[in-house]
Design a protein around this nucleic acid. Structure first.
Lengths: 212, 212
DNA sequence: TAGATTGTTAATCGATTAACAATC
DNA sequence: TAGATTGTTAATCGATTAACAATC
């Protein structure tokens, strides 16, 4: 019986829904109030589920009235840790990596790109959006010289992904957003999220044939 | 009691795992056999769960021996409907859309890009990877002239996404892979998968602070 | 106050896992 | 045959929903 083994009781599905609540709240005027029932209509999640999800983190509503939109928004941001600025680096700056840096809709204020890395000789030293592209080999040094790197976004080709991941972890990266279509082998104190476009296409392909 | 309302019993989580089984199988030599126990070690899903997932669709294994890798791979492809070629169109060909067309790792043999659409005057009429970029307005006509369009990939800016989606559905699109960071309002006979990079970043941000 | 809506407990539903007979 | 491993049933676990007291 190891008392420290008591795990975070929050299910990943709850966190996933919180991000979706934010999505809907951001279109509403912050001065207004919204009830869980109205949120149900907008989000498609049930009112009960919404209230339950929020109750894991605190009491954000007012009985008989609902939730202050500004307040709820700020609280969810706080839960997710995106009220402060998070520093990210991007590794691999081919078409996809470039798109992430340049299409500002994807990386917003709370995520700040502080480093870009590639191993292409012709790209190293050039700039994109004012950020110099560095050699992947410099990553360990870069980590020592910065106080905080929160997330590494990996957009390198599949066959390089595992090797670079190992390098990143050695250098001290604690969380990775991986776009390579591969299941990275990673120690479980490192957080990973995979964005696997091809897998999503495959799932979609199944569902288009299996609707009611 | 509507007997036709009997829904597909397959959970989305099963389909998601099937795509991951494929991911791991593709690295193995097709001539070999693999047991569910070995797959457990590779994929991280339990052997029981793997056997159960597969059992929804048939009996693909041999008792005492395991699964023929070639056979299992082909069967999962068949289940997902990716043994035949699926025609896709891409709407919105800025940085991200361009990346999808050009980085071949993302769209493989079984997905064939047959149309690209944008509303930028300077892009319409030009080509990318030999495919002519057409005006978004041409989509309804394009649909009438082709026998089959399986999936539309949406990489337009957030504020255009809903309007274009409505247009797509009117034109006859039945399934959409959406990259815009917005929850599309969609009738439920249309299949959608969202790839929401910013939401993934937010989730990751939570989990990096809440490991054991 | 009366009506509305939260936060939470208990009941239900669905998904995962353990166990094992069947059989290669 | 003996050992291995499937496919499946029953048991368990976890997540969702229904219901309602508390209270704005």
């Amino acid at each position: 019986m190891n008392i420290e083994k008591k795990r975070s009781p929050i299910s990943p599905k709850v966190i996933e829904r919180l991000t979706q609540y934010l999505r809907h709240l951001e279109n509403l005027s912050p001065e207004d109030f919204i009830s869980s029932k109205e949120l149900e209509i907008r989000t498609g999640f049930t009112a009960t589920q919404i209230r339950k999800d929020l109750s894991y983190f605190g009491e954000f509503g007012t009985k008989g009235k609902g939730y202050s939109i500004r307040n709820l928004y700020n609280n969810i941001e706080k839960i997710l840790g995106i009220q402060k600025t998070n520093n990210i680096i991007i590794i691999g700056i081919r078409r996809l990596g470039g798109a992430l840096v340049e299409e500002s809709e994807f990386t917003k204020e709370s995520f700040n790109i502080i480093g870009i890395f590639d191993n292409s000789k012709s790209k190293i030293g050039t700039e994109i959006k004012g950020i110099r592209i560095r050699d992947i080999k410099e990553i360990p040094f870069f980590f020592q010289s910065k106080d905080r790197i929160d997330i590494a976004i990996l957009t390198v080709p599949k066959k390089a992904a595992q090797q670079i991941t190992t390098l990143l972890i050695k250098a001290g990266v604690k969380s990775i957003l991986n776009f390579a279509p591969i299941n990275l082998d990673i120690p479980n104190n490192i957080a990973v999220q995979n964005i696997d476009l091809y897998a999503k296409l495959q799932e979609l392909n199944y569902w288009k044939e299996h609707r009611i």
